[in-house]
């Protein structure tokens, strides 16, 4: 696979890039934040080992000969998430902002510092979100969570273990990945009273829920939330029963893209996950499976009006505040 990709993209890659690409390709890195951490770590390793050829300028050469092809390679391993694109954009902006800096070593040191700062910033943001969101959980709550999101499970666990709240959690899961099992396992280990259900039962369980907490992969400039596939359905049913929906998301995931449907920038899972005709069907698979297509989307876009509040490290915000926050970020960097 790697060789094939190398041939397509052309050129040699740093071992860290290849390793990270394969990890993404095999789905070993769960969650977009994990992948952003991975990306930052990879970038720091690549940058550290990079020496500008004689007579070339470090910034431009690094960008053209190392960064761009590496990202192209990574993108082919697995499409870069919006939060990764954001991270790359900020990285490049910072890089080009150093054109006046003297000495290649100085630039490299400053960039490594930037990467370390970014990593720390994300870590602290998650910590802050955990505190803010956990404070919203009160005794006798019934909290609904969907699939697996490390941030959301950490919030629920914090509310139980540190704030000593007594509440119940309903874990809603869906195929083909059944990531909710991971959440359930973690919650059970933490001693939280949890109930497990399938996404089709949403309407039935929602009557007992009084808070929905979701994670997100990105928040778009029109207030839409890009989350794991099915999250918008959870929010929709919650909305129909007037149950508040909290979406936990770090502000580095706020993007300037706008989207009104789920088809752009999506990822497709393997067809075999949905269509495994050999099992438990008495129909003739050979003749019919060719005519059956599958659409195994991995993300969906939730309209902003389903969301009661975004929980971010800078506080609880409405979805309409996203463009303001991204502009502030931009101005601060400039």
């Amino acid at each position: 696979m790697v060789f094939e990709l190398r041939r397509v993209v052309g050129g040699q890659f740093h071992p860290a890039v290849v390793k990270f690409g394969l990890q993404m390709h095999r789905g070993l890195l769960r969650g977009s934040t994990t992948r952003v951490f991975g990306l930052l770590h990879t970038l720091s390793q690549v940058l550290r080992d990079y020496e500008a050829p004689a007579g070339k300028e470090l910034i431009r050469d690094f960008d053209a000969t190392v960064l761009k092809p590496s990202l192209e390679f990574l993108h082919r391993c697995r499409p870069l998430s919006l939060s990764m694109r954001n991270t790359v954009e900020v990285f490049r902006q910072t890089l080009f902002g150093m054109e006046n800096t003297q000495g290649d070593n100085e630039v490299k040191l400053k960039m490594l510092e930037h990467i370390a700062d970014s990593t720390e910033f994300i870590r602290l943001a998650r910590e802050q979100i955990k505190l803010t969101a956990a404070a919203r959980i009160v005794d006798e709550d019934v909290v609904l969570i969907y699939g697996y999101c490390a941030l959301v499970t950490s919030i629920v666990k914090y509310a139980k273990e540190h704030l000593k709240k007594e509440f119940k959690v309903i874990v809603v899961d869906t195929g083909p990945d059944f990531e909710g099992k991971l959440s359930l396992e973690e919650l059970c280990c933490a001693g939280i009273q949890a109930c497990y259900t399938y996404i089709t039962a949403l309407n039935v369980v929602m009557s007992k829920v009084n808070k929905v907490i979701l994670g997100a992969d990105a928040i778009l400039a029109n207030g839409a939330v890009k989350g794991p596939i099915g999250a918008s359905q959870v929010a929709m049913v919650a909305n129909s029963r007037n149950v508040p929906v909290l979406v936990c998301c770090e502000t580095f995931k706020f993007t300037e893209t706008v989207q009104t449907d789920s088809f752009h920038f999506n990822e497709l899972g393997p067809e075999s996950e949905l269509l495994n005709l050999t099992e438990n069907l008495n129909l003739n698979p050979g003749s019919t499976s060719a005519q059956i297509k599958t659409l195994n989307l991995k993300y969906d876009v939730m309209p902003g009006d389903f969301v009661s509040a975004l929980v971010t490290e800078i506080g609880m915000l409405p979805c309409s505040s996203v463009p303001v926050v991204t502009r502030e970020h931009f101005l601060r960097r400039a």
Binding site: I229, G230, D261, F263, I292, L295, L297, D300
Partner: peptide
Amino acid sequence: CSLASEGVAVTLISDAAVFAV
């Protein structure tokens, strides 16, 4: 499978993708 055998174009999705499509 049943619909495909009648020649209907079928796309199978997971329950989670209903809102998306």
